[in-house]
Design a protein around this nucleic acid. Structure first.
Length: 366
DNA sequence: TCTGGGGTCCTAGGACCC
DNA sequence: TCTGGGGTCCTAGGACCC
């Protein structure tokens, strides 16, 4: 309680809102091509369904035919033969995203933590979080003509999980009170941070539902997943954890570029040239940050689907010849006479001491 | 059906040092 | 013959997210 003007006034409660744009990428495309409204729209790759690429986003009309994110574009085109297929246009989505985040920051008292192009946490103190959520939805719509859904929670994890129940264009509240009632019967893979591999390993421990995970034995989890991740998974199952929205600017650890060859490549010279081209792009991104390179990495995927990575720490440097030589030393490790499906080059940068990294909140300190 | 591209973080094991 | 214990750094691999 705080004392204001001699009377006791209740302190507003801190809340976490998770704002998530509805079919963001498809919606941005429809905005600049209004004739696509209400149509099946699929965005992915270079917009060519004969190429090796996957779906980034599909409009609700296309989703109704079974098209979803991550699906090979070729398959998507088969399921939705009449769909309009568009290439991914990153800069357009970045611009739209910036407008959305500006609208969020304009909300009085809001602390905004950006999670990606189309989502952010908003920390607020209010006694009516639903009203705040609706105000935010209206502000985003007014500024960008885009619709969003808002999850409301007493922790970051609960807010994030709440959003799905609010889609589209709605809100939903998850707190310690209704968490198990709403989430308890769901499979663990519904949790943010539990994917297919972890859910299978949990099943091996007899843990199938969120409820199972919430009451799982800590020692058993630690034995299976390690002293950090084990307890973390149980915390996820309970929806517990931090409620602090952190608006410290995010600082990239590194930059990488990778490419999937349309036809698998075996030729050494061709691979070396591809590595140089990728490195050129990476160094451009790194140069824009003005921080020295501290490590390099190479990722290869042999056909059909075996992925290998090679990394190398390097003396802190801005010198491109040195970096190129290190990358070429990694290229030399690629098995000859083995067709390559994918090649990626990555550069780690030196981190400033006070930086908050971590754009993937399911790992690390939460 | 056949799997992109951009990221982050955790773990395990070996090397090395005291 | 039997071969410590702890700490840090580095590399490779795995998992997850949007």
């Amino acid at each position: 309680m705080s004392v204001v003007g001699g009377t006791l006034e209740p302190m507003p409660t801190p809340w976490v809102l998770h704002v998530d744009l509805d079919q963001f990428i498809a919606a941005v495309e429809v905005l600049r091509r209004p004739e696509l409204a209400g149509k099946q729209v699929i965005v992915g790759g270079r917009g060519d369904p004969t190429e090796r690429a996957v779906v980034s986003t599909a409009s609700y009309e296309a989703r109704a035919l079974g098209v979803g994110s991550g699906m090979p574009l070729r398959i998507a085109a088969r399921k939705a033969p009449d769909a309009v297929i568009l290439p991914v246009d990153g800069p357009a989505y970045t611009a739209a995203s910036d407008e959305v985040m500006t609208a969020l920051r304009a909300h009085p008292g809001a602390v905004v933590q950006v999670l990606g192009w189309d989502e952010a946490f908003v920390g607020l103190e209010t006694d009516d979080p639903e009203a705040s959520a609706r105000a935010i939805q209206a502000a985003v719509l007014e500024r960008t003509a885009l619709h969003c859904s808002v999850g409301i929670g007493d922790t970051l994890v609960r807010a994030k999980n709440a959003t799905d129940f609010g889609k589209p264009r709605g809100t939903f509240r998850l707190t310690a009170e209704n968490w198990l009632e709403v989430m308890g019967d769901k499979p663990v893979i519904a949790l943010w941070g539990v994917g297919s591999k972890i859910s299978k390993r949990l099943a091996g421990l007899g843990i199938a539902t969120v409820d199972d995970l919430a009451r799982a034995d800590l020692d058993a989890l630690a034995a299976e997943f390690g002293p950090k991740m084990g307890p973390w998974y149980r915390q996820l199952g309970r929806g517990d954890g931090s409620a602090v929205v952190d608006d410290t600017p995010w600082v990239a650890r590194g930059h990488g570029r990778e490419t999937t060859f349309q036809v698998n490549v075996s030729d050494r010279g061709e691979i070396e040239q591809a590595a140089r081209d990728l490195l050129d792009q990476v160094l451009e991104d790194v140069a824009a940050e003005g921080r020295p390179v501290a490590g390099v990495g190479l990722k290869v995927r042999y056909a059909p689907f075996l992925t290998k990575t090679f990394t190398r720490k390097v003396a802190t440097t801005f010198d491109r010849d040195t970096v190129t030589a290190e990358v070429m030393a990694l290229v030399a490790k690629i098995e000859p006479d083995r067709p390559l499906r994918l090649l990626g080059v990555r550069a780690e940068m030196q981190m400033p001491d006070d930086a908050r990294g971590g754009h993937t909140p399911t790992r690390g300190g939460w």
